[in-house]
Computed example of a mutant assay.
Amino acid sequence: MAFTQTLFQIMPVTIEDISKQLGVSISTVSRALNGKVDVSEATKERVQQVAQEMGYQPSAAARNLRRQRTEKIGFVFNTAISGISDYFAEIIAGATTAAEENGHNIVLYTNAGHSPDELLKLCKAREVDGLVLVWDHVPATVIDPLLEEALPFVILGRRVNHHQASYVSPDNYNGALALMRHLLDLGHMRIGFIDRPAMKLTHVDRFAAYRDALEGASIPFDPSLVIATDGEQSNNQSATYQLLDLPSPPTAVIAFHDLIAIDALEAILERGLHVPRDIALAGFDGLSASLLTKPSITTVKQPLRKIGEQSVQALLCFLANNKQQPIQITLPVQLEIRESTIG
């Protein structure tokens, strides 16, 4: 018996092992463990007791195969996680909580998002029950094939113009509008904007708020105050220098997101300027890194943890109901005023 117990500790216990131990058929053990009505209560109790004593654990793979489920949710990135680590840390905290509370695990895919073909291969493989797409921009050329594959998916952190696509997004327009009104209330008339057009609809919403706030304050739009960047550190700083070198430079600058604002701050300080006395600066996203700079950077805080949580919850709605209509959620954001605008 000692040898048998040691063997059970080394090898996973199967229903065949329980069958041999009890001297009953494998099918009887299986039906007893699954609570079937054609097995007596006495047999069920005996089987379950011996299964517990032997350390039996049901096979998740076998159970999921019967249910045609993996209990896994795929998070698919089309950008390096290292570049959005601060952003992702908050999102994944909310996402994993929502997933685990509902019996699911999260699997990260950092290569499948590099091309539509790779993404479709992932869908066809059915390695996961559904996908959460963490992309800068998800075009219709990606959305339509995904819909045809009938694998549920939700786009995280981005609004899309597709009536059949589901997403959970922050309120980019009203967040940028709040930033602009804050700077206008401080008396700034020339406000620069370091933009990222590659972010598509996020860019559209934030830039629209910039233009609308100027119009609301009866300030003419000056295209020289808007400089595009691709998000690389050197280019973010170059965009800042272009604004500083204007014949009439801005008295305040809004960066498209906090990481750009951090690079802009470094460029401004290198010129020997004081923030905010010489020039005010603001970002967007509410990353913890923007709180650690000197001065700390005024920003719009996204509810990142809630975005992750609600993206998973939305996906679970589709898994529970294959007739679920598209879910499109826009979450409120919060202006956080810090030293870079009022210090």
Rank of each mutant, 00 (worst) to 15 (best):
M1D: 10
F3Y: 08
F8E: 12
F8M: 12
I10L: 09
S19H: 13
V24K: 01
S27V: 12
T28N: 10
T28A: 15
G35F: 07
G35Q: 15
V37A: 11
A42M: 12
Q48H: 07
Q49A: 14
V50K: 06
A51K: 01
Q57Y: 11
S59A: 10
S59K: 04
N64V: 11
L65I: 08
R67T: 00
Q68Y: 07
G74M: 04
V76P: 01
N78Q: 05
I81D: 07
S82P: 08
T96K: 14
A99N: 00
E100W: 12
H104M: 10
L108W: 07
L108S: 08
L108Y: 13
E118N: 15
L119Q: 02
D129I: 09
G130P: 02
G130C: 04
V134H: 02
H137W: 09
E148C: 12
E149C: 10
P152W: 07
I155L: 03
Y167I: 06
A176F: 06
A176Y: 03
L183A: 02
D185N: 14
G187L: 05
H188T: 05
M189K: 09
T202N: 10
T202I: 13
A209W: 05
L214D: 05
A217G: 06
S218M: 14
F221H: 14
D222F: 09
A228R: 06
A228W: 04
S234W: 09
N235P: 08
A239L: 02
L244H: 03
S248F: 07
P249T: 00
T251R: 13
L265D: 01
L273K: 05
P276I: 09
L281W: 03
D285P: 11
G286W: 00
L287K: 01
T293K: 03
K294D: 15
Q302H: 12
P303L: 04
L316Y: 04
C317F: 07
A320I: 04
Q324W: 01
Q325E: 11
P326W: 11
P326Y: 11
I327W: 03
I327K: 01
Q328N: 13
P332L: 02
V333N: 02
E336D: 13
S340M: 15
